[in-house]
């Protein structure tokens, strides 16, 4: 284990950034997100970012390939580019856990999404454990330890006036070795953090929900939803996207862009039929996708308990309260 004095954090990031591009959690123009490190950036280390770091691996808008057309002829050229290695510094354990699900979606079941894969392979994750979760956090209800991220390359946690760092993968060890000049050897174990105060009952939830598709409770749950995309766009595990064209004259780009199951257009078919015509079906899809369909398909959590949707839903349609309400249904 290594330690880093808090006073030296800026120098540590600067040195690391001179070797490899580093993304850090910052507050910028009134909103928090991950952005490239610079000396004058405003680091946010006391809470998680509103924009999830999934954007570094799966951006909201991403070009897939370009094309040229000339009368009847056409050609295409892939725009998939393997980035230079980069470091994501300060990802919280919930968000690191979300990468597990994104990996399952983008890299398994017969097809690998090359655009995601190239970024995922080049990204080194330094997770920052949470000594004290926020009141909207409930990751430990899903089995995530707020102070540990097993999938991170390096686990880091605050301890009084310093940070303690432990490499968890080969890439992590190499990075720490490269930065050894900034670090001090330290004995002992990484400290544990406090548990979350917000809780949901997780065990058996998937099985409990399986027969609830037709339950009238969905008509109640959906009432206050305004069908905006806030929850889905801020969610670290939501991955749905649309594929679109941007044509300018004889050339153009095929790109993908986040989409949301909250929008009526999402499932609207060319002939006019919509299998999810009202907000009841759309709200049900969002919650069952997280809580039943993803666990069924990937034997994996569909929610990591980061609490962003609780924090930012304009009408406080809170997933933990929805889960409690669903548990009450016989």
């Amino acid at each position: 284990m290594k330690s880093l004095s808090k006073a030296n954090l800026s120098q540590f990031l600067e040195t690391m950034n001179s070797k490899v591009r580093v993304y850090v959690p910052v507050e910028q123009d009134g909103v928090s997100r991950f952005a490239p490190w610079s000396q004058d950036c405003q680091l946010v280390l006391d809470r998680n970012t509103i924009n999830p770091p999934k954007r570094l691996f799966f951006p909201q808008t991403e070009e897939l390939y370009e094309y040229q057309v000339d009368k009847q002829d056409a050609s295409v050229k892939s725009l998939a580019v393997k980035p230079e290695p980069f470091v994501v510094f300060g990802m919280r354990p919930c968000d690191v856990q979300s990468l597990k699900l994104l990996d399952d979606v983008f890299l398994t079941k017969g097809y690998e999404d090359i655009y995601y894969k190239q970024k995922r392979e080049q990204g080194i994750v330094i997770s920052l454990g949470c000594p004290e979760p926020e009141e909207t956090c409930f990751c430990d209800s899903w089995g995530v330890n707020p102070a540990r991220a097993p999938l991170a390359d390096i686990m880091m946690i605050e301890s009084e006036d310093k940070y303690l760092l432990e490499a968890q993968t080969e890439a992590g060890e190499k990075l720490l070795a490269d930065l050894s000049g900034q670090l001090t050897d330290q004995s002992g174990e990484l400290p544990e953090g406090k548990p979350c105060s917000l809780k949901v009952k997780n065990e058996g939830l998937m099985e409990h929900l399986q027969p609830k598709f037709e339950d009238p409770v969905w008509a109640e749950i959906c009432r206050k939803c305004i069908n905006c995309g806030t929850c889905t766009y801020l969610c670290p595990t939501c991955y749905c996207f649309d594929i679109l064209n941007r044509t300018r004259g004889k050339q153009g780009v095929k790109y993908r862009c986040y989409d949301s199951c909250m929008y009526p257009e999402y499932t609207l078919m060319a002939g006019g039929h919509n299998p999810r015509p009202t907000k009841k079906e759309r709200v049900r899809q969002r919650f069952l996708h997280k809580l039943q369909y993803i666990p069924e398909r990937y034997q994996e959590l569909g929610c990591v308990g980061c609490g962003r949707c609780i924090k930012k839903c304009p009408v406080n349609l809170d997933i933990t309260r929805v889960i409690n309400q669903l548990w009450e249904v016989e």
């Binding site: 305004i226 905006c228 995309g229 986040y258």
Partner: peptide
Amino acid sequence: KQYDKCIRCYACRNV
């Protein structure tokens, strides 16, 4: 700067 932050969730429209 302000609208570069926009994620086009349409919450402003929907409320």
